[in-house]
Design a protein around this nucleic acid. Structure first.
Lengths: 111, 111
DNA sequence: TATGAATATTCAAGTTTATGAATATAGAAG
DNA sequence: CTTCTATATTCATAAACTTGAATATTCATA
């Protein structure tokens, strides 16, 4: 992490952070981490109504974070930039605590 | 990274992301990563005018991300939540590319 | 081609966030 | 107590983001 390296990318980094900085969008990304999921399934899993969910999906798509693929009647969304999962992981460790994050990785060294 | 774990923290996570999602704020955090720095030094290092810099410092302080300590005439700012450096690191790897990030760690395995 | 299920889009508030200009405050030094 | 340096604050405007309501589109199937 170096200032001179970051300087030319500060705008991009800001844009990226803002593109995911929304409760619904974070949850969507989390839900997509293991592969494509249909809008309907996201609706059920996250408990979010169709319209607001679709609105956030549109933003994620507009930023190139996710992409949708039609399969018959449904549209399956998938993460288009796997590298952002790294940010999600760090974020979860910060907000959910190291315990939960470590548990996710299978390192349940009980304290 | 699990939906059920993240759900109750989605609002907090969003707030955290937004609190750092600004070019100046990102650069400030990067500049503080190795210890306290005075406002004047930040001004010089980042090439940002005093007023806008102070405005962003105020926001970071209001969110509890940094804290300032007076030493005589100057105020030295430091990171109050070291855990966010992890997010910064991930972010840098994403926006600056793995090459730069690895180089930072000393793993210059030329491709 | 009509119908139903799944998903997307538009629009209009309302709210937050960013930016620049002007200025205020706090402490050091004389 | 005045002056200088360092830093903070206020304010107004502009821009971006969020949300809900209403509705449109797309495809499958009959």
């Amino acid at each position: 992490m170096n200032i001179e390296d970051l300087k030319p990318h500060a705008e991009d980094a800001t844009k990226l952070l803002r593109s995911i900085a929304h409760p619904t969008r974070l949850l969507v990304l989390c839900a997509l981490k293991d592969g494509p999921v249909s809008v309907g399934a996201l609706q059920d899993t996250l408990g979010i109504d169709q319209v607001p969910l679709s609105q956030q999906l549109m933003k994620l798509r507009a930023e190139g974070i996710v992409e949708g693929q039609r399969r018959g009647n449904q549209i399956f969304y998938a993460i288009a930039r796997p590298d952002i999962l790294q940010i999600m992981q760090s974020l979860q460790e910060v907000v959910c605590g190291p315990a939960v994050a470590a548990q996710q990785k299978g390192q349940t060294h009980a304290a």
